[in-house]
Design a protein around this nucleic acid. Structure first.
Lengths: 336, 336
DNA sequence: TTGAAAGCGATACCAA
DNA sequence: TTGGTATCGCTTTCAA
């Protein structure tokens, strides 16, 4: 193992000089800096992370508290994790995985043993049981999701309430008067995931504002559940001409079942999805969608965390404005 | 921050005694041990991970090199990660995320900076470009996947070759004489992912052994691709009575398209899937499947890593025997 | 512009 | 059965 002392010897300087060259916290003559650089390269030196952390009281790592449950939004989850990892690495942070199951204890453990400088928490509930701990545990923390009362915690997410409103308004603007929403699985609402609850409340508010006849219901991810939801809808509310879908997994089923029931998209029924853009583009009928910008949310989350680590400013709430893209799944209703 | 010195003072012993109580590497009188235990609890002491790592030359962490690409097997990937994380925590190891994109450099970095003691690498290719580095980098390493020439690296995976054989044999035993396989996306074979290549080779060997007319082709994850694959198959090989599917994402589509083309499962066409059990159970028609035991593979991988860390023995190859479960999607062919 | 040396908080060897 | 202390590899203060 190559240590800083090896580098110092090789370069003919003291180890503190090597340290300063690497950190840039001291002005160093061009000459020595170059010699040190060369020694570092020649020996392939990389500072020992533990030693560095011990001395500097900074580990350069963040805890990622992620739900590895096979829930609604699996590909979205991956996109979150990937973008967080990439953004973290760019900021020279490593990512320590803390699973949801470890609970409060998990975060307290990594904090107390000084394994991380900060935490990034995904998958929040409106009144998340972890919030008291997160608020008081002293770790700089950014939430991906927007709970009821974040207190002094930073939050970032797509503005899901606004997204719900937009989805309804878009259909209303096209002339639809009766719409429905197929939501995420029941379990997601039962635990009050912020993204599901807020989107639903936006959906309701949009309907109220535009005086649209609107209903919604949770839908499980299975083919059967989606098919049943559609059949019930067609039977009970035949007047519906627009469907909002907040459930990535059932999108293909929704399209194929509607077709098999003799309903054409968008001629008979318009569809708007809340889903990642690539998913919207790759359906049998390219879907008008409000994008879930998972990559951007992840990047912003890391940025916000860095700002807190630098002690620059307090908590912030960042809700990204929804972007709706018109594709082939929406049109004016036939009888409009 | 509570340090070992605080605990020592509180318990009226030396800090080395505290260390020994915690590590159990020395016999301690019942009395002092109890006093130290109480002090630890009273102060809420948790050893500083960096200090411990620096002194003991062991960080108690493993690198998880995972592909966060939205590939074929997304839910499976999650199951891997979840089970690995759980098993690691049980062994008191933390998990550091290293993304595929960081490449060789990523692993070298975490090794050189002593961030981890070992590595777990997922998603291997038959002649993975990382193999030379993995073999020589000095980090104890377990591969999830079975490449062409693992050398002195430990591997664990489902026995995919055997799984392919079994799938064919099961259909052959039922009396099918002409079968087909829908594989993973083309990109997966292009990069020669071990799981896809080995399953396909097993499929071919099974067909050879039983003198079954068998063909296979990669299939993209989209609805269109799956539908096209089915229509081509029905047109070009109407004699086919059994289909093996190694592509979780298209399972629902395969079932619904077959039905919409007037083919009943299993009456007209039998289906065997290689997929996780819950996925097989939750299709419109419960699928006969060979299970992808992601959870078990993850656990075994961590076990193998621990064994290597303890210096107990060399490289091992563990290929888990396939388990086939008969459900409603297979039967004897009609004309048999 | 640089070096010497005192920590950082543990572990583990050497003594007693 | 226990304590003292050198040590791990780095950062950062104090001096020059």
């Amino acid at each position: 193992m190559v240590t800083i002392a090896d580098v110092a010897r090789h370069a003919g300087v003291s180890s503190s000089t090597v340290s300063y060259v690497l950190s840039g916290k001291r002005t160093i003559s061009e000459d020595t800096r170059e010699r040190v650089r060369r020694a570092v390269d020649a020996l392939g030196y990389r500072p020992n992370a533990s030693a560095r952390a011990l001395a500097s009281r900074r580990v350069n790592a963040l805890a990622l508290v992620a739900p590895f449950r096979a829930d609604n939004n699996v590909p979205v989850l991956l996109e979150f994790v990937a973008s967080i990892a990439a953004a973290a690495r760019e900021a020279d942070l490593d990512v320590l995985l803390v699973t949801q199951e470890e609970g409060d204890e998990g975060l307290l453990r990594v904090r107390d043993s000084a394994l991380v400088d900060a935490a990034l928490v995904m998958d929040l509930e409106m009144n998340d049981a972890r919030l008291p701990m997160l608020r008081s545990n002293g770790l700089p923390c950014v939430l991906i999701g927007y709970p009821e009362d974040p207190g002094q915690l930073s939050c970032v997410d797509l503005d899901l309430h606004q997204s719900g409103v937009r989805a309804v308004e878009h259909l209303a603007d096209l002339g639809h008067r009766a719409i429905a929403m197929f939501g995420s699985p029941p379990a997601v609402y039962r635990r009050e995931s912020t993204y599901a609850v807020r989107f639903a409340s936006g959906f309701e508010e949009g309907a109220r504002r535009r005086a649209i006849a609107a209903t919604w219901r949770p839908v499980d991810q299975s083919h059967e559940a989606a098919a049943a939801a559609i059949d019930e809808l067609l039977a009970e509310r035949p007047e519906v001409t627009g469907i909002v879908v907040h459930n990535e997994a059932i999108l293909p089923t929704v399209l194929s079942v509607l077709e098999s029931r003799g309903r054409r998209v968008p001629d008979d029924i318009s569809i708007i999805a809340l889903c990642p853009t690539d998913m919207a583009e790759n359906q049998r009928v390219p879907l008008t969608n409000i994008a879930v910008p998972a990559g951007e949310i992840g990047r912003v989350a890391v940025e916000m965390l860095l700002r807190r680590l630098d002690g620059a400013g307090g908590a912030e709430i960042r809700l990204l404005a929804p972007e709706l893209t018109e594709r082939s799944s929406t049109s004016a209703p036939r009888n409009a």
